[in-house]
Simulated assay, not measured.
Amino acid sequence: MSVSTRSITRPTTRPTTRRRTLAAAATGAVLALVLAACGSSSTAPARPGTGHGGSAAASAPSGPMPSTGDGMDGMDGMPGMGIPAGNGLAAEQDGYRLDSTIATLPAGQAVSYRFTVAGPDGRPVTDFAVDQTKPMHFYAIRADLTGYQHVHPVPAADGTWSVDLAALQAGTWRLYASFTPDSGPGKGTDHVLSRTVTVPGRATDTPLPAAAPSTTVDGYTVTVQGEPMAGMAHPLTVTITKDGRPVTDLQPYLDTYAHISAFHEGDQAFAHLHPETRVDGDHGGPVLAFHAELATSGNWRTFLQFQTAGQLHTAALTLHVA
């Protein structure tokens, strides 16, 4: 599978179930991220809105939007604001806008977040393409890059989405909605939009763990190998073992053997990557091949999700782009 940076639009003709091409990944002490198609599909064109090598910039909202508590809505992704354009940090792009009247969420308890995606006509979008078995993917991360959640909202007929989030710690959280309209002027164009919410209380930041090539979760060891550099496309591999033995029973999770989501330290820029390894039943692994590129240097907190025996595992690593 080749990977290309997310650029402008995808063709309007494609399978009912797409393979998301957001970017992410890493290696040893070096990380590079780019969009890649899911393992069981052919490579798809890159997407706008993830800030990976393309020139597409997020546009500013055209009108007042509900406050999300950080004072930055309407400026996310704009040049000159110290935030890279088009990498999931904008609340509005290409006429599509992530709207919510919720500016705060309670701490320490499961909560529901409600939002809509307004289209170029200003009305809530109700027709979305299915991507990796879901019409919408939703991510949450705290400002210190802790508390990662990847969940799937439920739509109502009027275009309102509801998503259940696990208990949140006090602090500022960024919430990302990843979707593709299936009709209208934006049909076939992938978007990642985000807003922030405040969780009241005394917020204590957790220092970002040091960069490392491997980590363990639930008894599994995840190791990233390769030497990609920022702005250059390079292959990399993820190897999964348990008790020193290769893992060969990875199960498909949302149509692929692994999901990598990554968040850039400081601005929370978002990237997402899937392996090029083809899905072939419940015996994936131990090695998953990726191809990655990202022009942005710095530390990234990377979350790799994979499934065995019906259980989802999330391995977290800090990786660095030179």
Rank of each mutant, 00 (worst) to 15 (best):
D94K: 11
H313F: 10
V151I: 04
A129Q: 04
T50C: 11
A262K: 10
P209Q: 06
T13C: 06
R20H: 05
A107D: 07
T221P: 13
T16V: 12
T21I: 07
V287P: 04
P15K: 14
V217A: 05
S297K: 13
Y113T: 03
G310W: 06
L319T: 08
R14N: 03
D249F: 10
V224Y: 15
F306A: 07
L89W: 04
S40G: 02
T277W: 00
T133H: 15
F115V: 12
G74A: 05
G80A: 08
L193Y: 04
Y176Q: 05
T16K: 09
G77N: 02
G186D: 00
A37W: 03
T27Q: 09
M65G: 11
G88D: 02
T221R: 15
A118V: 08
T12N: 00
S7F: 03
V34Q: 13
T248R: 15
A90H: 04
V199R: 02
T198K: 15
D144S: 00
V217G: 08
E265K: 12
L89V: 00
T277H: 01
L208H: 00
F115P: 12
A212I: 02
R123F: 05
R245T: 10
S41W: 07
S59H: 01
M65C: 14
D255Y: 09
D282C: 11
S214A: 15
E227A: 10
V287F: 00
P209F: 02
I240K: 08
D243P: 02
R47I: 14
Y113G: 07
V217M: 10
M81L: 05
R278T: 07
A85V: 03
V117A: 08
G80H: 06
S214V: 13
G201Q: 02
T43G: 10
R174P: 05
Q132I: 11
S2R: 15
G77M: 03
T13V: 11
P286D: 12
A56D: 15
L236N: 06
V222G: 09
D144W: 00
H152Y: 15
V238Y: 10
V34K: 12
Y139G: 09
Q307M: 12
P213R: 07
V321I: 09
A140H: 01
G95V: 07
Y257H: 04
T277K: 01
D218V: 05
T314F: 00
R47V: 08
T5A: 13
P185V: 12
T237L: 05
G122I: 02
F270Q: 08
V30W: 13
P228T: 13
M75E: 04
H283T: 05
G266Y: 06
S40E: 01
A46D: 03
V130Y: 09
T248D: 06
S112Q: 06
H283M: 09
H137M: 02
G80Q: 05
A143C: 01
